[in-house]
Every structure is written in C-alpha cells, then in structure tokens.
Design a protein around this nucleic acid. Sequence first.
DNA 1: CTGAAAGCGCTTACAG
DNA 2: CTGAAAGCGCTTACAG
Lengths: 335, 335
Amino acid sequence: MGKATIADVAKYCQVSTATVSMVLTNKGRISDVTRAKVLKAVDDLGYIYNQAAANLRHKRSNLVGLLIPDITNPFYAELIAGLSHWLEENDSLLFLANAEENVARQDKFIESLISQNAGGLVLCPAKDTDVNFLNTVRGRGFPIVLAVRPVGEDQFDYVGTNNFMGLQAATEHLIKLGHRNIAFIGGLEGSQTRSHRLGGYMSKLLEHGISPQEKYIVSCGASRPEGAAATKKMLEQNPEITAVIGYQDIVAFGVMRAIKDMGLTVGKDIAVVGFDDVPEAIDTSPALTTISVSAQQIGRAAGEILLTRMKGSDKPIKSLIFPPKLVVRKSCGSC
Amino acid sequence: MGKATIADVAKYCQVSTATVSMVLTNKGRISDVTRAKVLKAVDDLGYIYNQAAANLRHKRSNLVGLLIPDITNPFYAELIAGLSHWLEENDSLLFLANAEENVARQDKFIESLISQNAGGLVLCPAKDTDVNFLNTVRGRGFPIVLAVRPVGEDQFDYVGTNNFMGLQAATEHLIKLGHRNIAFIGGLEGSQTRSHRLGGYMSKLLEHGISPQEKYIVSCGASRPEGAAATKKMLEQNPEITAVIGYQDIVAFGVMRAIKDMGLTVGKDIAVVGFDDVPEAIDTSPALTTISVSAQQIGRAAGEILLTRMKGSDKPIKSLIFPPKLVVRKSCGSC
DNA sequence: CTGAAAGCGCTTACAG
DNA sequence: CTGAAAGCGCTTACAG
C-alpha cells in the first residue's frame, strides 16, 4: 500500500496539505472541526509523520550523536544510560558510535552525523583527537559538547569530573594508611585527563614529603589484561611498592588479578585504589576502594548543554565539573 | 556562509546538479575531466553530502535502530559492540535506545525510528512485548530482527543462543559434582527465554532422577541487589540447598554476595553457576563458572540479517542459534 | 557524456 | 481559519 503521506491525508479529508501540516505540528489557527477531520484521516490511513522530511525542510533536527571510546567499559555504559534517558525525555534520538580509541573512526562518525543532519554531538574524544578538526566542524554550526575527556583549552563546552582532586583524595587515603611507595598504573600517554590525575597524585605525595618516582608511574590501556601485565612488571621491578592506584577501575581489576596471581593478598600485602566506581567495584574481592564519579550524571548534563546549544544558545563556553568522591571499601585493608 | 549544497557545487564548476550528483554517487558515465572539476569544487567549497536528503528521495536509508532492555548489563554492552562494529563496516549509523523493560518506551522508540526513516531494527524485546504491534510495524515494510529474546513463534528473524542446552549443561555440571538441591534464581516471569532455561534445568534434574522442586525456583530482576535478596530468602527458607544457578551472571554476582554476607563460602558451602560469561565473571572471587554466550557474535549476526532484509531479501524467516558453552571456573569448588 | 525538470514528504510566508 | 505555491537538498528517468 505504500506509506501514507501528508498529501494522502489532505486528499482524504478534502483540505490542503498546509492545513494537515498545521494540525500535525499544532501551529496556526485551525478550527476544531477541521482538526477533528484531519485527525480522523490520520487514523484511518495509518499515517506516520515523516520527521526526516520535516527536518530537511526545517534545517534542524532532533538527532544527537554520542561517541565513546569503549562501550565495554561499564563507565561508558552508565554515561550512555544517563544521556539516553535525557534524550528520550526530550524526544531526541541517539546515534551511538564506539570509536575504540581510533581517531579515523571518530572523524568518520562525525562526518556521517553531519551528513545525516544530526543536530550535535556529545564527544568523549579518542586519544590524539585533533582540536582543529573539531573546530572546523563546530564552525559549520554543528555544536559539540565534550565529556569525560577535555581537549583544547576551554574551547568547547565540557562536562567531567575533577581528576586532580580525585587523585589527591586517593593518594591521601593511601598515605594516611602508611603507604609511601605508591605506584600509578594506567592511562594513555598524552592524555590531559591523565596529566590531571598524575598531578593530583604527585602533588599529594610532595605535600607529605614523598618525592614522586618516575619508575612508579606507568601507562597502559583500559583493560584488565593490560592492567594486570603492567602491574606484574611493576611489582617485580619494584618489590618495595605497597600500594597501587589504578587509573580506572577496569585497570584496577587487572591490578588485583596480578597481585593474586603473584601469590600476594590485596589489601594486606598491596593496597589498591581505582577510579570511576563502576557497579562491579563492590563485587570484587576484596571490594575495591575507588573514586566515585557519576557517569550517568555526566551523560545527562552533557545532553542538557547540547540541547540548549542546538536550540541556538550562544552563552559563553562552560565547563561543568562534578566533584569526585572517595569510596572506602576493603582493597586497602580494613582501616 | 551556510553549508554548500549540490547546487552550489554545480554552479561553481558550471555543470548541472545531475552531473554533480552522479559524480558523488559514482553513477552514470562521467568524463574524467568533469569528474575532476566537480571534485575540486567539492573540496574548494567544503561541501558535505546530505545523506538525509538523498534518503528522502531514495526512500531507503542506512539508519538502523537497536533497542535493548538494559544497557548497564555488560552482556548488552557486548552485543552493542558487535552490532555497531558491523554497522560501521557497512556505513550504517546506529540509533540506540534503552527501553528499561518498558514496552511503552519501546513502542515510542519504534515509532521514532520509522518517523526518522530508519531502515530497520534489531530488537531485544522488553518484557510483555506485543507481537501484534511488531507485526503491523513489519507490515509497513520495516524489517525487524529479534535478538537474545524470542517473541512470537518464529514469526521474526531471530538470533540468540540455545538457552535450553545452556541450562542443561549448567545443571549437569552441578549434578556431576554431587549436588541434588539446586536452586534456580532469576529471570522474569512469563519470559520465553526463562521457560527455555527452566526447561533445561528441570529436564536435566529428571534425567538424573531428581524431581524439580517449585520452591527452589524464584524469579527476580536482572541486578545484583535483586539477585542477592532472592538468594538470601531462598537459602534461609531452604537451608538444604547446596547449589544455585543464577539466571544471568549479573544475578549470580548478587547470589555470591548474599552467600558471603551469610557467612558462607562460595564454592565450598554453596556452588554457584551463572549465564552469559560477561567479562567480569573471571574477576569475581571465586571466579564464576558460567555459560558462555558470545554477545558480540549475536549482535553482529543480527546486523547481518537485518541489512540483507533492508536490501529487500525475502528469504524465509530464520533463527540463528549459537550454541552456549560451559566455562568451568572456581565458583563450584575445584573439580 | 551531460542537462532540464519533476519529485521525495514536509513547511512556511503570503493571500484571502 | 484555510489554500496555492515555492522550496529544503538530493536523484532519476528522459532527452539530446
């Protein structure tokens, strides 16, 4: 039968397409009787509004993109949940892509979004993202809100957490427990987020008269196996270490695994702290002490800002920083 | 400056829009010199192809929807990864929605997809999904591929695992280990998947001369806390139980937590088996014995089938069932 | 090999 | 309060 269009509806009830359109979008002044007639026709014909055609005409859209570096990291799953919930409340649809830390894929996704007439993007940028590219994209009237990972100094709206403070809290916790030789494992070289976390870690060490050791700091990808491998090497080379901070929970899980594999006990021989407070952090054994960040909250807030930009807001660029919180569990021993 | 259109490009290099279109889509016969001229203009003008307009004209699209019941369940995160990877390879874009087990949200999402000219949907149906609604949607030429959860007897293409066999394997494993009083915790009443799993569980018990006890079977939502609460109650009321099968890993994690909270030892006092083999199953303590299902594989396969349907394939409906696999770890003791 | 023109399904001034 | 008509950015027979 082919889908009914606005023209079919118009013909069916003997009005113009303009009238049908106005009824459908609740614009203009339409008499109740005409409105009823149109609505009935819509029903009879099983007409479905073609939002894509309307968007083309309008030159606006209710489509939003979200790009994340790794969907299997539960932190991002939470972020997606927060954003998608917000978008649903606002009748927007979500395009999702998983860049897997690959800038080429990221760029391709952004091009597709524009080509598809999406209205904007929440971007958790992949490593080595090119700010210039983002700038030209935005220059074409395509708003971008950064989340989780900042890029370019305050050139874009940004929602994230205070990484510096988070690591200060984690480090302080360990120092108070008597640790001096504290390793920092994870994060990708060159990441701003990592710099902030490292800054928090090192500044807190110094504050307590402990000089940061370069050999205690190592980067690795965001996965359990990489966390485990890095830990094994670190502990073998530096047996004096008594505590390790995992860059993310997901890495901290790998850290714990490595410690166990080496025949040591987490929370007794080696204390472990993570970052993110992912749901399963409470279920590891021992349960992971970590820095809690509400990924859902970040997702939702990024969505809020993006929608106002899509509606044309030209308020100054803003950064929204949610404070992180230390959650003490068992992985540093009982305190 | 406003975005350049095909008309701008055409004017810029003194050809018709038809020619530009043909160059862009690689159709028709275009001389090399004209092609080069057009391509240069595209470049000079920073022209971006408007896929949405093309889709409108074409009446087809490269947009695909995915609806899942709970994105924070890592099983679905894996499925998304598998599907999105496939779609990316095929230049399609993914609309994602999180129904949270709510049929109204699900229906709303489906309407939006159609309205947005999406080409089809991979659906992991929410509880109480109405098959009739799905049928009318498909009747309008909107292909749907079901994943993970079947609905309606073979009326739709379906990709999933063999739940019956999976639970047979899990149950057999426990029986061989000497367990007789085996609880089954989780799943939502009325779910077909649950029936299949229950069938596998009960049939295997009977096969070994053990009569299934209704009191050993209880449903609960897909979360750790619900799994824990159900387990606590179950074990208090039936202290003779020595093993429990969690409907999903996520529930099994709750089961383990409850067992520990009661002062018992997982794998010694009570054996635990899960279902899914989610990445963190290897990190719990003890590591979880579970039924492995490749969610990534399911996601990708569903995508493959959907794209062929979107291209017009009218092959008979098919069900693709991946065999599940028992993965023995430590949560049932050392065997 | 290339162009003129109609049309995808909607919206929006502009008349009346 | 309602209609005629142009146009959003593309594609596709049809001519030539």
